[in-house]
Design a protein around this nucleic acid. Structure first.
Lengths: 121, 121
DNA sequence: CTGAATCCGAATCGATACTG
DNA sequence: CAGTATCGATTCGGATTCAG
């Protein structure tokens, strides 16, 4: 029997809820790009190569909702919107960078494993 | 124009494909549990508290396909199946532990940020 | 015990069009 | 420029059933 009462360990489900926010579709890539400097909507869109407006909007909302990203409207014409990391967002930099570098390092290994798996009898 | 030819940097899309495998729904939690020791299907299911058979099966398949997990059938009766990490899977331990610990540490902060966001006018 | 197969409604996706 | 609205397509999730 697993309980969370009186324990400092939260339930797996509640941790996974957090992980879900943080590892959702474009989150890692967006955070990585925002680490460099605050960026505007279309700058992110260009960098992310392949993301749709809708997906980018939704991802940024989710990150904003979780307190990782700040959305700042700059009242010029036409309107500019700049996204930047909060301190909480910055605290994810190291873990995300580790994930990102892992992905770069092991990309071809993973791709080969997948191809081999798919070619199985 | 972005190309990947002759560059050591893969395209964002190809990196995200890898990240998707690795950060997909239950991956982090499964890998964390498998770090301790190889485990059987139902042991994982119990530990993961809330996962369905289908989701666990699919997650394990995905991890196996990407070369992170090995599935070993132990021919006893009734049949036992043990899942364990490959060296590649083990190499994810540190990044995932970092993510996991971040989630535990900042869980309440994130939850409060979400509640505040949702309560906005 | 460890799954595979199926069904079905819900959620998500991508493309397109439109707006301040 | 930075979105919102909409719609059809695909995928996903959970429940159930069956099998080696």
């Amino acid at each position: 029997m697993i309980t969370t009462q009186e324990r400092e360990l939260p339930s797996p489900a509640s941790i996974r809820a957090i992980l879900d926010q943080v590892t959702s579709k474009w989150s890692v890539m967006i955070l990585i790009f925002l680490c460099d400097k605050p960026q505007r909507f279309n700058a992110l869109k260009r960098n992310l190569d392949g993301i749709t407006q809708k997906a980018l909007t939704e991802s940024l909302r989710r990150l904003e909702r979780s307190g990782l990203v700040v959305r700042r409207v700059i009242p010029v014409s036409p309107v500019a919107v700049e996204y930047s990391l909060t301190p909480l967002g910055i605290s994810l930099k190291d873990p995300f960078l580790a994930l990102y570098q892992w992905s770069m390092k092991h990309r071809t290994t993973v791709e080969r494993a997948q191809a081999a798996f798919d070619a199985r009898p």
